[in-house]
């Protein structure tokens, strides 16, 4: 499809550990993200979410599969042109803003860094102007330019993390648990901000999180990942209204909601699976783009 910003086909990311063992962190994962859309990736910790993000942005070299970014194959060996496109047009927001912001650099310089590297043709004034505009977009006043990351609150740091990414006008934003460490009130602010930016720029987003309520709000499509495999994927409402895979159901029933009566009556649905149960299984199309892994655990 022409308007897919990202296509991931049969992605595998294996890590050799020791002599003979490998960790199959991501095992045959496929999904697409269209322009202006957000794909929410949910699943328990250790299921492979971060690894998928890092493989796509090429912090790792994929073991197998295709990653097609705006029509360019980026899973294999990268030439100079592709590397440069990747570094410019794909950006990642991390969970812990502190560890990803250089404590010796001022906020203004942190935000400007990407421009310095990838847009050398811009004048000093133009760069400064863009930094100021970016600060405004993320809701920080211009005095922040001269502050250091450690002088900021968690929410403010996350805004700097976003400003640094958005100033590059990326085509794809990978947000890896970008709001998980923030208070709900601040989470809502950051999510609104990301959505505004997306509306303006038409960029696509891979939104990785374990808070399903927030994922539901922000994503048009969802992939549910378990033990390195996507077990169910499709349009957000489809997944929430008609979950098919027992793992998806167990996640959905576990979301705490602000209704004490419903919460107190809630029955958890327990689910256990073994990795081998998912190997060499295919996704079945239930219609409307709703796909579920045919592993015998549902029918």
């Amino acid at each position: 499809m022409a308007n897919n910003i990202l296509e991931v086909h049969h992605l595998k990311q294996y890590f050799p550990i020791g002599k003979k063992k490998v960790v199959k962190a991501v095992d045959d994962v496929s999904f697409n993200i269209a322009s202006g859309e957000t794909f929410g990736l949910v699943g328990e910790s250790g299921s492979g979410k971060t690894t998928i993000g890092r493989s796509i942005i090429r912090l790792y070299k994929p073991t197998y599969g295709e990653v097609i970014f705006e029509g360019e194959q980026i899973a294999g060996t990268l030439d100079k042109k592709r590397t440069s496109k990747l570094r410019k047009d794909m950006q990642m927001i991390f969970q812990d803003p502190m560890s990803s912001l250089n404590p010796r650099k001022k906020v203004g310089d942190i935000i400007k860094l990407g421009l310095d590297i990838h847009y050398p043709e811009l004048s000093k004034e133009e760069k400064q102007e863009r930094v100021l505009k970016m600060l405004k977009v993320v809701g920080l006043d211009s005095s922040f330019i001269n502050r250091y990351p450690q002088e900021l609150s968690g929410g403010q740091r996350q805004r700097v993390g976003i400003a640094r990414v958005v100033i590059m006008q990326p085509r794809l934003i990978i947000a890896d648990e970008a709001i998980s460490a923030l208070d709900v009130s601040v989470q809502a602010q950051v999510v609104n901000l990301l959505q505004h930016i997306q509306e303006e720029t038409g960029s696509a987003m891979l939104f990785i999180a374990h808070d399903l309520a927030m994922v539901k709000h922000i994503s048009s499509h969802i992939g549910v990942i378990h033990l390195g495999h996507i077990v169910e994927s499709g349009p957000t409402d489809e997944i929430f209204d008609h979950p098919k895979h027992p793992y998806t159901k167990s996640l959905l029933t576990a979301i705490p909601i602000t209704d004490p009566i419903a919460e107190q009556k809630k029955q958890l649905s327990d689910y256990h699976a073994h990795r081998h149960q998912y190997v060499n299984k295919t996704m079945v199309d239930l219609g409307n783009g709703h796909m579920v892994l045919d592993d015998g655990s549902w029918s």
């Binding site: 602010q189 609104n192 309520a213 539901k216 602000t258």
Partner: peptide, 30 residues
């Protein structure tokens, strides 16, 4: 607190939790 909240701060906290059953375009914030 959940059925008859009275303080605007409590309202703000409750509102900023997204409702899985009802979609809104923009999340209320404090």
């Amino acid at each position: 607190i959940f059925f008859d909240p009275r303080h605007p701060y409590t309202w703000g906290l409750l509102e900023s939790v997204p409702d899985v059953n009802e979609a809104v375009k923009e999340l209320p914030t404090i």
